[in-house]
Amino acid sequence: MTEFWEENFNKKKEMWGLDASRSTIMAKDFLLKNSAKNILIPGIGYGRNAQVFKENGFDVTGIEISKTAINLAHKNYGENFTIYHGSVTQMPFEDKKYNGIFCYALIHLLNKKDRKQLIHNCYNQLTKNGYMIFTAITKNAINFGKGKAFEKDQYEFNKGVKIFYYDIEAVKAEFNAYGLFEINEVEENQPMYFIKCKKE
């Protein structure tokens, strides 16, 4: 996984552009409304989804597996936010707690064990009454069922990237124990679920 993303960020640089995703705007609005001040973004990439939070007064911390992506983030958006270099499977990187965690288009790239670990670790880094928001690709995606099959509903269509495709039942199975209270659909470059959890 590290090699794949290093190679991609080296070749394609800011491959998704510099504008924040639709889900990021939705997450920013929700977290602002609920008085979140500091957020963690696992899989921050080159920072395009961090900037909108920074512009709205959030204290932002990121985690990123690709050193190249971290360098791009600091080049584009400045050095005044922390990005830990490593895999989200190695969380936590510090003892800090966050009132918000936003994890965009990452969880479906992991296997079942690592997905469970990521959700658990994110939940553990939330403050009481903190929120975590995940986006995850759905079975309505055009490539669902295409390519080499791995675990149930997980396929490798592009070499090096195994994607797990969610349905509502899978979202509930993985998130119910972690304060799941809302699932919406949002159209990005692929159809996604917008998943909200709260730590009571």
Rank of each mutant, 00 (worst) to 15 (best):
A173Y: 08
E151M: 09
L180E: 08
F93S: 05
K75C: 02
I195E: 04
R22I: 14
M192S: 14
P42G: 00
N129F: 11
T82I: 13
K11T: 14
C103R: 00
G43E: 02
G57Y: 05
L32E: 13
N140R: 11
E6R: 00
Y123G: 01
K11W: 02
E64T: 03
A50P: 03
N143D: 14
Y98S: 03
K37H: 13
N80T: 13
L118V: 10
L72S: 02
L126D: 04
N49Y: 03
Q117I: 12
F53R: 01
L109Y: 07
H120L: 08
K172E: 15
F58Q: 09
H120F: 04
K28T: 04
D167V: 13
K97G: 08
Y123R: 02
K54I: 15
I44D: 03
N184W: 09
D153N: 15
I44R: 01
M91W: 02
L31Q: 05
T135P: 11
A105H: 06
A20N: 08
A136I: 08
F150L: 12
K172C: 11
A27W: 03
A50V: 11
A170T: 12
K146S: 10
N56T: 09
G47F: 00
A170N: 12
E151D: 15
N80P: 12
L72G: 01
Y123S: 08
F102I: 10
F144K: 06
G160Y: 04
E55P: 07
G45K: 00
F164M: 00
M15A: 12
G145C: 12
V171E: 06
E188L: 09
A177R: 13
K113M: 07
E174R: 02
I168V: 14
K54C: 02
F150N: 09
K196L: 15
H85M: 00
M91C: 03
K162A: 06
A27L: 02
C122A: 06
D29N: 15
S23Q: 05
D167Q: 13
I25K: 13
L118W: 07
G45Q: 00
Q51Y: 11
V171I: 15
Q125F: 07
I137A: 09
T82V: 14
I163H: 10
T2K: 10
H85C: 04
K162P: 01
L106V: 08
P42N: 00
F9H: 05
N143I: 10
K13F: 03
K75V: 06
L118S: 05
Y84I: 07
